[in-house]
Design a binder for these strands. Structure first.
Lengths: 154, 154
DNA sequence: GTAATTGCAAATCATTTGCTTCGTA
DNA sequence: TACGAAGCAAATGATTTGCAATTAC
């Protein structure tokens, strides 16, 4: 791998439209509600993991929606493999759209908590297959996060 | 990399002794208390991340120690770089001894929560240096976790 | 002796659950 | 209409904080 494979990715064109995602949800038994649409739109507009707090403070969701409802919908989306829960050092859970092997890796500042999205060919995919063979684990996926002190905080 | 580089690691000889770790802590301004010694011993005996709950249910710590005290000591150890907080899908925080680049990667069952420790040459280290150069982030480190369904749960 | 550490109690904050009402299909 | 989804309130669980008492150095 050479350096040109690695650059910070500020934003990418979404892989799907809100409409297609809504249809996908409906095909898995979910109903089309205002919250579902707003949530999917929010996920499509951010390739960074989103915290429940960020969801609730979003203007299109915010006051109009109960906390428990947000948690329940996120749970239903996760059960169906539409979003993925991401482990985080913060107190609250973070979620991202589940894009399978098109996922991204993150670089997180340990001082200010800022998140940058990295874009490079994932070096772990072949290893993942090897682990699956060795261990017998199924449906393998991975989470890779980098931590450090960003230039502003240093 | 060939397959022989990858095997599941059940347990390893600890990298340090309790005594040397205690001395390290003292050199960073911590006092030698019963909890500190018990905690360091617990960390040395487990290469897996330890949850606060597991710490409190440990016989050598258990009832003899207040919850708030455990949290406060873990915080002091983390500030000094002696342990590292590990992001987790569970509600509670997990910690491991900070072994720098001698860290391990984990394979976690999404069904039963079981954790296996993987032992292989980390494929991310060179990438990490590249990221440091590109982004200007300092003190870089990473967390890599694999998730899947273990043979028992499948 | 002094500053760090602890214990205890109470406060926060995230997340979950029960139950009733509402809205989509 | 029927069942999934939302709203509301209360419960649970993890983590944090204030303050007075204790202990290592």
């Amino acid at each position: 791998m050479n350096d040109s494979c690695l650059h910070i990715c500020e934003h990418d064109a979404p892989a799907s439209t809100v409409e297609s995602l809504v249809e996908h949800c409906r095909s898995k038994g979910l109903r089309k509600t205002a919250l579902l649409v707003a949530l999917l739109r929010l996920f499509l507009n951010s390739i960074k993991p989103i915290s429940v707090q960020a969801i609730q403070s979003d203007s299109s969701i915010g006051d109009s929606c109960d906390t428990a409802t947000v948690y329940r919908l996120l749970g239903r989306l996760e059960e169906r493999g539409i979003v993925r829960r991401i482990g985080s050092h913060e107190r609250s859970m973070h979620y991202v759209l589940n894009l399978g092997h098109n996922h991204r890796e993150y670089l997180i500042c340990t001082q200010c908590g800022g998140v940058e999205v990295l874009d490079f060919p994932c070096p772990v995919d072949t290893l993942e297959q090897k682990i699956a063979r060795k261990t017998g684990y199924q449906h393998l996926y991975h989470e890779l996060q980098f931590f450090g002190v960003c230039p502003k905080c240093a």
